[in-house]
Design a protein around this nucleic acid. Structure first.
Lengths: 195, 195
DNA sequence: GCTTGATCTGAACACTCGTTCATATAATCT
DNA sequence: AGATTATATGAACGAGTGTTCAGATCAAGC
């Protein structure tokens, strides 16, 4: 048998992913070479192909990991049926999750066009599933009379775009604490969906 | 003297810009080659360098043109001192302007990282000038008591992110007319800034 | 009709790209 | 100790990169 302990594959693999994530976020998928990624990890190019069949798979794995992380983390949170509370927890979760992973978020929103069509479809369906979670909350709140909204789908797009925008300006140690940011955005969202 | 009429430079120049804009928007700056751009226009690569010193200048020219277009078009609109009306016209303008130029908008938000530091600084200052226009409206409305907002800067980011997001889903001939889209977004923004 | 000069071609330059593979290294098992 | 095999090297492949430039093309001015 081959060695199962002492092998550095379990260390090298994640290190490659981390290096790819950082470089893709900073310079863009197309602008980053496999040699740059290898150099970052301290390997020669060829060694990367023990961990990924090609460059595209490296990107897909990052995107898919991020989207599943997003969906699973949200699904694991305790859910309320009370629409206003449910929306508030979605807003606070979305901001907190995105603030904590600026690189993954950046890649997930920027590099979709570098995916092959079938990979694009798979990632896109994961994103739609997440959007549907919010739309469902909005629909329930409208049905219960808690929310006054014209169009649940358009409101979903509006809210998510607004919240995700936090990653374009938020920096750790800035003027506002994460909780303060959540408070302000929740104020805006709450008022936007109530008359 | 050389010919000043009959020259196709005035035609070729804009055609190169248009081809670059379309290709950059579709595949990203780094993924597009000068040969692709030339091919789109029906030229050989070398001819491009009669119109741009290098690839980077092509991108900068697109970004700078877009930002000046944005600032100038807004400045040319009749302005009101009445905060609510002023904000409404900003919202409607922003949506209409961005819906009409999805490619330019996409590039302006995606390709900043492909700029050299000094080019980035120049483009970024133009963007800040635009954001300041909205912040000023919000500040005036807060001073007059028309708006109830926690933080004018954060509200600016929130509104602009929400409105710009329209380009990610809006398609000509879709379910909603441009005016309906404006109406819905204005409803959300209006409520978000009033108690 | 000849010169001028803007415009374009086609080839070349020096690199970099993603990917492959024979070979080397070293840790684990028998 | 020797065999096994996961992991890594280093060189090579063909193709594509941005940019340059001598020379061709051709419309306008004299």
């Amino acid at each position: 048998m081959a060695r199962t302990q002492g092998s550095h594959a379990e260390i090298t693999g994640p290190r490659i992913q981390a290096a790819a994530q950082r470089l893709f976020a900073d310079h863009g998928y197309a602008a980053v070479s496999m040699r740059q990624i290898a150099g970052e990890v301290g390997l020669q190019v060829g060694a990367l192909y023990n961990y990924t069949p090609d460059k595209q798979a490296l990107l897909v794995s990052l995107l898919e990991g991020h989207m599943h992380d997003l969906l699973d983390t949200w699904a694991a949170l305790p859910q309320t049926v009370e629409p206003m509370q449910n929306l508030e927890s979605f807003v606070r979760f979305h901001i907190a999750f995105h603030m904590a992973r600026p690189q993954a978020v950046f890649i997930a929103y920027m590099e979709l066009r570098n995916l092959t069509p079938d990979n694009f479809t798979r990632i896109e369906s994961l994103r739609r599933r997440y959007e549907d979670a919010l739309t469902t909350i909005l629909d329930r709140g409208r049905a219960s009379g808690d929310f006054h909204i014209d169009d649940a789908k358009l409101t979903t797009f509006g809210i998510i775009a607004m919240l995700t925008g936090v990653t374009t300006w938020y920096r750790d140690g800035g003027r506002l604490t994460p909780t303060e940011v959540q408070d302000h955005y929740w104020n805006m969202v709450r008022r936007a969906v109530t008359a």
